[in-house]
Simulated assay, not measured.
Amino acid sequence: MDVKGLGAVVTGAGSGLGAETARHLAKSGAKVAVLDVNEEAAKAVAAEIGGIGLACDVASAAAGEEAVAKARDTHGPCRILVNCAGIAPAKRIVGRDGAMPLDAFEKVIAVNLIGSFNMLRLCAADMLGAEPLNDDGERGVIISTSSIAGVEGQLGQVAYAASKAGINGMMLPAAREFARSGVRVLTIAPGLIGTPLLLNMPQEVQDNLAGQVPFPSRFGHPSEFARLVLHICENAMLNADIIRLDGAMRMQ
C-alpha cells in the first residue's frame, strides 16, 4: 500500500513514538490526523507536518467518534491507524500502603487497551466502507503498540503488562475478521525506546537499562519504530502478527 495521499490517524502523537510516526507518514505523503489528550502538543506536531491536530481521550467513545469524524471530513476515510497512546504508571499489587487501588488498574486498562480498541473499531468501520486501493483489494491497515512487557511483565507493572497483553490478544481475532475486507491488523511490541520517559531518567539508570539490550546495546530510536510502521504499511504480506522491536532484549 502506497501511503501517499491516504488519510492516517495516529494517537498519542503529541510526543514520543506517535509524534515521530506522524512525521514519517507525513513525509511519505500521507494526510495525518495527530491525536493526543494534550491538544496543544497535538496541534504543534500537526503544524510541523502539515496535518491536523485534535484533542482526543482515546478511552472515550464520544471523543474518539468526534476525532475520527473530523479526520474523515478533512482527509477522507481513515486508511492507516497507528495506536500509540498509552500510560505506564508503576505500582505494586500490594505496597506499603496496602492493596493497589482498583481505579489505578482501571485507568491503565482504559487508556492502553480500551483506548486502542476504541480507535480500532472506529477506524476499521471507515476502512471497511471505503473502496479498495489496489489489485489486492486492500482497504487499510491498523497497527497497535504493545510492548515486550506484554509477555515479560516487570515487578510493579501489572496494569501495564495486562493492558499490553490485551492488545496482543485482540490482534488475531481482529485480523481474521477484517481479512475478507482487505484490512490488515498488526501489533508492534517495542523494548526500550529512547522517548522522554527514559531519557529523563538519571544517566546511570539509562546506562544500566541500555546495557541489558544484547544488540545494539542502546535504546531504540523513535525513528526506528516509525520506519517499521511505514514498512508494514507498504508490505501487504505482513498481517496478523506481533513484531518485536527490542534488540533481542528479554526483560528480567
Rank of each mutant, 00 (worst) to 15 (best):
96 R>Y: 05
175 A>N: 06
81 L>Q: 14
181 S>G: 15
111 V>L: 08
92 R>G: 00
127 M>G: 09
73 D>I: 01
161 A>D: 00
169 G>V: 05
78 C>M: 13
167 I>S: 02
155 L>E: 14
171 M>K: 07
74 T>E: 15
170 M>N: 02
57 D>P: 02
125 A>Y: 11
132 P>C: 11
180 R>M: 12
141 V>K: 06
98 G>R: 10
71 A>G: 12
112 N>F: 08
78 C>L: 06
191 G>H: 08
66 E>K: 14
91 K>E: 15
85 A>H: 11
92 R>P: 08
162 A>L: 06
159 A>F: 06
141 V>L: 12
52 I>E: 07
148 I>E: 02
80 I>S: 04
160 Y>P: 01
59 A>Q: 09
119 M>E: 05
169 G>E: 04
74 T>N: 09
156 G>K: 06
179 A>Q: 09
118 N>Y: 03
179 A>E: 12
86 G>M: 05
91 K>D: 13
84 C>E: 11
148 I>L: 09
193 I>G: 03
171 M>G: 01
61 A>V: 15
64 G>T: 13
139 R>E: 08
163 S>I: 04
85 A>M: 08
120 L>T: 14
186 L>I: 10
161 A>I: 04
174 A>Y: 04
121 R>F: 10
191 G>E: 06
157 Q>H: 11
115 G>V: 03
125 A>L: 13
70 K>S: 12
